[in-house]
C-alpha cells in the first residue's frame, strides 16, 4: 500500500472576482521507501500540492479529491486533531522559503525543540527531558550538516544565512523521525558541494530508514540521480508519471521531452554552439489558463482534440495524459 495516495486532487482558489482552478486532477503516489520527484516549471503548482498535503490552507482555498489518503486513512475526512497527529509523527515538511518559514521572534533552538514530538523524549523529570531534548536537537543539527550548533541554535532567523536556514528547516522536518519527508526545493540556491551533501543525506536516510521522500524541485540534474520515480507537472495538471528510468529513456508526453531536452547534460549528442531546444512561450499565469490540455498553446503536437482535457492513459505503471503522445505517429 502506498504511503501517500492522491487521486484527482483539485484545488480551487477563490480570489473574490473569479474562481481559479490552480490544480486540476492531480494524481500522485509515494510508496514507503520511495523517492518520488515532483518536477515542473515555477508556477506549475508544485508548492500548492505541498501546502495542500500539509493541510495548512487559507480559507479561500477549496480542496477536493477522489482520494487523498495517508497509509489507508483518508486525510480529507479525518478530524483536524487526527491530521495534526499524523503531521506531527509521520510527515515532515520542508517549505520553499526557509527563512520566511521560521518564526522571527523565537530562537532556532527553541523552534527545533518544539518540532520534537513528546514520545521521542526520554526521561520522566523535566530536567531529564530538557536534556534529552537538547541532545536530540544537537544530534539532528549535526546530521543535516551544521557543525556550529552553539552559534546557530542561539540565533534568530534574521541572523543566519539562507543555506543554514534551509538546513535547519530540513532538521526540523527530520527531527520527528517521520515516515515521509515532503521537501519543497530544499536545495534551492545552494552551491554544489552543500547541495550534494544534502542530497546524499536524503538518499542515505531513504536507504537506511526507508524514508519516503516527495522531492519537489525543478533541478532535474539533482533529482535524476537519486529518485526512483517522477511526476511531471505542468500548470497544475499532471502530465506524466512513472519510473525515473522509463521516463528518461522514453518520455511519452511532449512536455516531458521538452523538459528533458532543455537540460543539456541529458542530451549527449549536442553539437557545440547549437540552440538549446525549448518550447516557445512561457507558462501561463493562473489568471489566464487555457482550456483543455493546458500545454495546448505551446505544444508542437497540438491539434483540435487538445481543447478537451486528455484522460490519463497507462502503459504498465507509466501514466501520461496526452491525446497525441510521442510513441504514436502524428495523425
Amino acid at each position: 500500500m502506498p504511503l501517500l495516495d492522491i487521486k484527482n486532487l483539485t484545488l480551487e482558489i477563490d480570489t473574490g472576482t473569479q474562481v481559479i482552478k490552480a490544480l486540476d486532477k492531480i494524481n500522485l503516489t509515494v510508496n514507503s521507501g520511495e523517492i518520488r520527484a515532483l518536477v515542473g516549471e515555477s508556477g506549475s503548482g508544485k508548492s500548492l500540492i505541498v501546502q495542500a498535503i500539509s493541510g495548512a490552507t487559507p480559507p479561500n482555498w477549496t480542496i477536493t479529491a477522489d482520494r487523498m489518503s495517508w497509509n489507508g486513512n483518508n486525510l480529507l475526512s479525518m478530524s483536524e486533531q487526527q491530521r495534526r497527529q499524523i503531521l506531527r509523527k509521520d510527515i515532515g515538511v520542508v517549505f520553499q522559503h526557509a527563512i520566511a518559514s521560521l518564526d522571527p521572534s523565537v530562537t532556532l533552538g527553541e523552534q527545533l525543540e518544539e518540532s520534537l514530538p513528546e514520545q521521542l523524549i526520554e526521561g520522566s523529570w523535566f530536567w531529564q527531558r530538557a536534556q534529552s531534548r537538547r541532545k536530540e536537537v544537537i544530534r539532528t543539527v549535526h546530521k543535516v550538516g551544521i557543525k556550529d550548533h552553539e552559534q546557530y541554535l542561539q540565533a534568530y532567523p534574521h541572523q543566519i544565512p539562507t543555506d543554514i536556514g534551509q538546513k535547519l528547516m530540513l532538521a526540523m522536518a527530520l527531527i520527528s523521525q517521520p515516515k515521509m519527508l515532503i521537501a519543497d526545493d530544499p536545495t534551492r540556491g545552494m552551491e554544489t558541494t552543500t547541495k550534494v551533501q544534502v542530497l546524499k543525506l536524503l538518499s542515505r536516510l531513504n536507504q537506511t530508514r526507508s524514508l519516503g521522500i516527495l522531492f519537489v524541485s525543478h533541478d532535474l540534474l539533482a533529482i535524476a540521480s537519486m529518485s526512483h520515480s517522477m511526476t511531471v507537472l505542468y500548470c497544475g495538471q499532471t502530465v506524466e508519471s512513472g519510473k525515473m528510468k522509463q521516463i528518461r529513456k522514453r518520455p511519452l508526453h511532449p512536455y516531458t521531452k521538452a523538459l528533458l531536452d532543455s537540460a543539456p547534460s541529458f542530451s549527449k549528442d549536442l553539437p557545440p554552439k547549437s540552440l538549446l531546444p525549448t518550447l516557445p512561450g512561457t507558462i501561463p499565469t493562473l489568471q489566464h489558463l487555457p482550456i483543455g490540455c493546458r500545454l495546448g498553446p505551446r505544444c508542437p503536437r497540438a491539434q483540435r482534440a487538445c481543447v478537451n482535457v486528455p484522460s490519463v492513459r497507462k502503459i504498465h505503471d507509466h501514466a501520461y495524459s496526452c491525446h497525441f503522445p510521442l510513441h504514436r505517429e502524428k495523425v
Partner: peptide, 12 residues
C-alpha cells in the same frame, strides 16, 4: 505569514 503555515505543518 509563512511561518504560521510551517508551524501548522509541524502539527502544533
Amino acid at each position: 505569514k509563512p511561518f504560521i503555515i510551517a508551524a501548522k505543518s509541524k502539527g502544533l
